[in-house]
Design a protein around this nucleic acid. Structure first.
Lengths: 107, 107
DNA sequence: TTGACATATCAATATACGTTGATACATTTA
DNA sequence: TAAATGTATCAACGTATATTGATATGTCAA
């Protein structure tokens, strides 16, 4: 069994940063209804072509979307697993680790 | 009724960006067991005093933690509601908006 | 095979963010 | 009141990220 349990904080923070941009949240919103061609995204978002390409790459590098080429078109899809994982991660963040409710440290 | 339903993307992206840093994830992890004094965090994290203060402020500005002063000490606590909201938001992100599975746009 | 097209990448620049060290501020203790 | 302490803020700097315009690459149509 490989060391798969290592959380890889770097990958997680990259994923959060990928969600930390309004353009990219709008792209994700457009992808919610299923796979979309880049040309559709270009029309729907008021964003230059190379900038859109940059944001799509950022989302892909973060593992939030996958892409597929077909002829001269490119299609992007949300990676549902990645979002499920992230949802779990966020849900676990505030969950009380122990019942130790912060013994007074000072004073 | 005020315009409270407006999602306020800016606030949401700020929250994601706040989670997009390893130091801050570690701080959050320390706060999972309850309210913590800054002095404890200083000891637990190998981070300079002003840098820790910066990250705590970033988390506070994002609404992920609240702070409280007591004498010369400052205590920080996770805002459970904020995490719950964010968990819901992440969970909703990939949820299929309509059953329209991307009509071919081109070709 | 040439030209138009869709998309990606590159180079340059602007803006945001993280880090450090110094300083300020409030509170406590001597 | 003076010195010490805990924390926040400021100024300066480096690095990362966002944005733009130009160019490259692959694919289709004439």
């Amino acid at each position: 069994m490989a060391v798969a349990t290592t959380p890889d904080l770097e990958a997680i923070t990259r994923r959060f940063r990928a969600l930390g941009d309004e353009h990219r949240l709008k792209i994700i919103d457009l992808l919610r209804s299923g796979e979309r061609c880049v040309c559709e995204l270009t029309d729907a978002l008021d964003v230059g072509q190379s900038l859109l390409s940059f944001h799509l790459r950022t989302l892909r590098d973060a593992g939030l979307v996958t892409d597929r080429r077909e002829g001269r078109w490119a299609y992007y899809t949300l990676d549902a697993d990645a979002f499920a994982q992230l949802e779990d991660f966020v849900g676990a963040l505030p969950s009380t680790k122990l019942s130790t409710n912060a013994a007074r440290c000072c004073g």
